[in-house]
């Protein structure tokens, strides 16, 4: 039912030009998604992003260390 509702509002947004209203209704219908599902989705996304962010952070720290050695 949630998917059908999203589909309806996607149609309203695309075919009738009521994009902001449709967006608001899609956010409203998100209240029907169980919290566990949202938590699982967020955990999956952050789980994939964390290694990337930590790798980028480590690379930046290494670069900074290298610059410091060069300046000395």
């Amino acid at each position: 039912m949630i998917c059908f509702s999203v589909l309806l509002h996607l149609g309203i947004g695309l075919f009738m030009g009521l994009t902001t209203f449709s967006l608001m209704m899609m956010i409203f219908v998100c209240s029907f998604i169980p919290p566990e599902t949202i938590q699982r989705a967020v955990t999956a996304v952050t789980g994939r992003l964390r290694p990337l962010l930590s790798a980028a952070g480590a690379k930046a720290a290494e670069q900074k260390k290298g610059e410091l050695v060069m300046s000395q």
Binding site: M1, I2, C3, F4, S5, L8, G11, S31, F32, I33, P34
Partner: peptide, 24 residues
């Protein structure tokens, strides 16, 4: 089809999705 979809969805949403655990 679009008219039927809109009307049936809006009429049935409350008793197909509005009760219970909030799933769908």
């Amino acid at each position: 089809i679009n008219i039927l979809f809109s009307v049936l969805l809006e009429l049935s949403f409350s008793f197909l999705c509005g009760t219970g655990g909030g799933g769908g």
